[in-house]
Design a protein around this nucleic acid. Structure first.
Length: 512
RNA sequence: GGUCCGUUCGUCUAACGGUUAGGACUCAAGAUUUUCAUUCUUGCAAUAGGGGUUCGAUUCCCCUACGGACUACCA
């Protein structure tokens, strides 16, 4: 147990949180909670171009719905601007921390680990095009940096002059040459990269006085005393840079441990899971529904009727397993059992069927009374009035066959309203010859019955039919046809008992 | 193209270097339910290919193939 463990989930507010992002947040949360540590939510909004209105609140709300609430960090609706006991490192939105990054970038320049670069985007674009034309790719690195427009190729006087005259310069990290960078990933183990294969990344830009992700990330992780970084696989290629930044900044000892999670892949075909796959295959990709500026809606697990527990459980098992055969885990159980070492290295294709299965498992564990409350709005919408007691009995008859509350109505509408049509196939098969006469007689017999309990009906019905010598199958199925309208549903005695004497007789009288 | 990561049933995955390679989802069959579903039972189905190391390789190493990520003054 190390209650000094501090992890962060650091999304960019460029749109709704993808389910893969939720999984990353979840693993961070589980890792922290298991160690009695702190889970921090930080917003990485250093790219003003891609900022999307509402995205930050979406992220907060989504995490809230999932039950993975941050201990520290940005709060819903509340702007934490200055440090407090609960939020000692506030603010947690990088755009609000912009002033603090420059000094570290400048410090790197002074130590000789970085330099000012004055190349315009146009110039760089041109160089890229030229390289491409030759079948090569342009890389701003140790081989050519001395020949480009930067403080390495200018005298310090020239540099000072340009710096004061222009505001479109950047600071680039000066990646050392031919240095073996030995890294360790908690999931993948040892990883080696030679620094010569890396380029000189921009770490700070004068145009908006903002750092790029790499610097902001490393500085904030250091300042916020992050001990473990668990993030997506897309960051693995920049891990060497991050290692070097820690080293150059003199924070080697404080460098956190890293774990890179594999991506969530689309269910069919190849590639990573995207919003389009959800639209195409009919499943949500986002935890909550999202409406973009154009008014397009993207479905959410919440709106589709998933329980957050089921969603979280499903997500946890996409790339992790406890090593036992137990598959249903509450959030608390996940906290107990999670281990970063058991996270799978390879990417996981998302399986919507399995997601449904999880929800089905959870719906079976719900209290009937809760299902009643969830179903009531649907009943009201249909204009049905009945007691909670009745609804509870109806739901308990069919609860083992649903995966979602919204499936209840289609499965047992006949328990709330008489059938308005009769399945012709079933009718053709069973509704023959003298059946109507028998049903009439049966109806009259039921009129004289007082006890409509399931047990009594179950015993009485077959006994009566047998006694009369009528064809059992035809009568039973015809009875079901009149009561239900088709060939489906719970036991006929259950249905008759629930409908009650009056309603049962009424439906039989309606005939065909 | 370059760098890095990965590869066990259709899918998610398990397996101190020694297992009839296990489980779950899906699918199929049977039983039960005088319907449908549930439930239960059974079945189908995998170590990418090739080399090593080893008494023995899914497991360790190398090569190939395939997949993925990254390769921005985006994160």
């Amino acid at each position: 147990m190390n209650n000094n463990t501090r992890v962060r989930f650091a999304p960019s507010p460029t749109g709704p949180l993808h389910m893969g992002g939720v999984r990353t947040a979840l693993y961070n949360y589980l890792y922290a909670k298991q160690r009695g540590g702190t889970f921090i939510l930080r917003i990485e909004d250093t790219d003003s171009q891609r900022f999307v209105e509402g995205a930050e609140n979406y992220i907060i709300e989504a995490l809230e719905w999932c039950g993975i609430t941050p201990d520290e960090g940005v709060q819903n609706g509340e702007i934490v601007t200055s440090p407090s006991e609960k939020h000692p490192h506030a603010p947690y939105r990088q755009s609000m921390r912009k002033d603090l990054y420059k000094e570290y970038a400048v410090q790197l320049v002074e130590k000789g680990h970085a330099y000012y670069a004055f190349d315009s985007s146009e110039e760089l674009e041109k160089l890229r095009k030229e390289a491409e034309a030759k079948g090569e790719s342009f890389t701003y690195n140790h081989k050519i940096r001395e020949t480009l427009n930067n403080s390495l190729s200018h005298t310090s006087d020239e540099t000072i002059k340009i710096l004061s005259e222009r505001n479109d310069w950047v600071i680039r990290y000066k990646m050392p040459q031919d240095q073996n960078i030995e890294m360790y990933d908690m999931i993948r183990g040892k990883i080696d990269v030679n620094s010569s294969t890396l380029d000189d990344k921009v770490i700070w830009k004068a145009s908006d006085s903002l750092p790029t992700y790499h610097l902001a990330n490393v500085v904030d992780d250091f300042l916020m005393q992050i001990t473990d970084v668990i993030r997506g696989e897309e960051w693995l290629p920049s891990l060497p840079l991050h290692y070097m930044l820690y080293e150059s900044l003199g924070w080697k000892e404080e460098r956190p441990s890293f774990a890179h999670l594999s991506l969530l892949l689309k269910p069919d075909g190849k590639g990573k899971l995207s919003k389009r796959d959800g639209d195409r295959l009919g499943f949500p990709v986002f935890p909550l529904e999202w409406k973009n500026q154009q008014g397009d809606r993207s479905g959410g697990y919440r709106e589709d009727g998933y329980y957050p527990e089921a969603f979280i459980n499903m997500l946890a098992f996409l790339g992790w397993n406890p090593g036992t055969e137990k598959e249903i885990f509450s959030l608390e159980e996940l906290v107990q059992s999670f281990s970063i070492e058991r996270v799978v290295k390879s990417g996981a294709k998302f399986n919507p069927e399995k997601a449904k299965w999880y929800n089905q498992e959870y719906i079976r564990k719900k209290e009937i009374s809760q299902l009643v409350q969830e179903f009531k709005p649907i009943l009201e919408e249909k204009g049905i009035k009945c007691s909670d007691q009745y609804t509870a009995e109806a739901i308990s008859l069919i609860r083992d066959r649903i995966a979602f509350v919204h499936e209840i109505w289609d499965l047992c509408d006949y328990l709330f309203t008489p059938p308005n049509s009769y399945d012709p196939k079933v009718k053709a098969k069973f509704w023959k010859e003298d059946i109507p006469v028998h049903i009439e007689e049966l109806k009259n017999h039921l009129s004289s019955v007082e006890d409509f309990s399931k047990e009594n009906i179950e015993a009485l019905l077959p006994a009566y039919i047998k006694e009369k010598g009528w064809p059992m199958g035809k009568i039973m199925n015809s009875l079901r046809l009149l009561l239900v309208g088709e060939s489906k549903g719970p036991g006929i005695a259950d249905i008759i008992s629930l409908l009650g004497k009056e309603e049962t007789i009424a439906r039989l009288e309606k005939k065909i």
